[in-house]
Simulated scan of single mutants.
Amino acid sequence: MGTVVDAPAVVTEKEVVAENMLGDKKVTVVFVLGGPGSGKGTQCSNIVEHFGFTHLSAGDLLRAEIKSGSENGTMIENMIKEGKIVPSEVTIKLLQQAMIKNENDKFLIDGFPRNEENRAAFENVTKISPAFVLFFNCSEEEMERRLLGRNEGRVDDNIETIRKRFKVFVESSLPVIEYYDAKDKVKKIDAAKPIPEVFEDVKAIFAPYAKYVIIYQAT
C-alpha cells in the first residue's frame, strides 16, 4: 500500500532543473518552442494541469499590457501599428513582472525567445538560463494541414500567411534551438503524433516535476 506525499521541493536531475534568481526569487524556466500548428499550446495546458507550471505567453502579456491602457501599453500598440518590432527589453520586463508577481516558481515561457537577440537579451537582463528548451518538432506539411483545418476563411490567403510564418520561424527561432542544443539543453518532441501520444513523451520529460510521488512501504 502506498502513501502519497508531496514531492521534494528540489529535483536533483541536473539536466532538467536549473534554478536561478529573479530578484530575490528562485525560479525554474522552460522555454517552449515550435512552429505554428505544432500543438505546443495544447501541451502547455497539459503540463500546467499535471505538473504545476505557470504558462506565460509573451504574446498574451503584450496584448494584456495594451488592453490595460497604460503608457507602456500605448507605446507597444503604436509600435505594432507602425509595423515595428517590440524591443526585447519590453517583452522581457513583462515576463519578469509576471514571474515576480506569481506565487509559483516553475514557468513555461511559450513562443519566446523568438530569435537570438531575444535569447541573449533575456539571459543578460534576467540572469536566467532555462532549465531546458521543449521543442515541438513537426513537418511544415503537417502544421499547414492542422492550421488550415482550424480556419474556415479563404484558403489561398491563409496558405500564403501560414507559409510566411513558417519562414520566419525557420529563420529566427531555429538558431535559438541550435544554440541550446549545443549546450545539451533541448528536449525534442515528435509533435506529428496524435495528441495523447505526444503528451506521453512530454510526461516522460517532466516526470521529475510530478506534484506527488508514491512511496511504497513493505508490508
Rank of each mutant, 00 (worst) to 15 (best):
L56D: 05
L56Y: 05
S57A: 09
A58T: 09
G59F: 05
L62D: 13
L62Q: 09
R63Y: 06
R63W: 05
R63G: 07
R63A: 08
E65V: 07
K67M: 06
K67Q: 12
S68A: 09
G69W: 11
S70P: 09
S70E: 11
N72R: 12
G73T: 13
T74D: 02
M75G: 13
N78P: 04
N78Y: 15
M79D: 09
I80M: 15
I80P: 01
K81T: 10
K81Y: 04
E82C: 03
G83I: 09
K84C: 07
I85W: 04
P87Y: 00
P87N: 00
E89W: 01
E89M: 05
Q97Y: 07
Q97F: 15
A98H: 15
I100V: 02
I100H: 15
K101V: 15
E103H: 13
D105A: 11
D105W: 13
K106Y: 15
K106V: 10
K106T: 03
F107C: 00
F107R: 01
L108F: 10
I109F: 01
D110M: 03
G111K: 02
N115V: 11
N115K: 08
E116F: 13
E117H: 10
R119P: 03
R119N: 12
A121G: 15
A121P: 14
F122D: 02
E123M: 04
E123C: 04
N124F: 03
V125M: 14
T126I: 00
T126Y: 00
K127S: 14
I128P: 14
I128K: 07
S129P: 08
P130F: 07
A131S: 08
V133H: 02
L134K: 12
L134D: 03
F135R: 07
F135G: 08
F135T: 04
F136K: 15
E140F: 09
E142C: 01
E144Q: 01
R146W: 00
R146Q: 01
L148P: 05
L148I: 09
G149R: 03
G149F: 11
G149K: 03
G149T: 14
R150L: 14
N151K: 03
G153N: 13
R154F: 12
V155Y: 11
V155N: 08
N158A: 12
I159H: 10
I159Q: 15
E160M: 11
T161V: 13
R165T: 00
R165H: 00
F166T: 12
V168T: 02
V168I: 02
F169P: 06
F169Q: 06
E171D: 08
E171Q: 11
E171N: 04
E171G: 05
S172M: 09
V176C: 03
V176R: 13
D181P: 06
D181V: 08
K183Y: 03
K183S: 10
D184W: 12
D184S: 04
V186I: 10
V186A: 15
V186T: 05
K188D: 06
I189E: 07
A191W: 00
A191R: 00
A192V: 04
A192Y: 04
P194L: 05
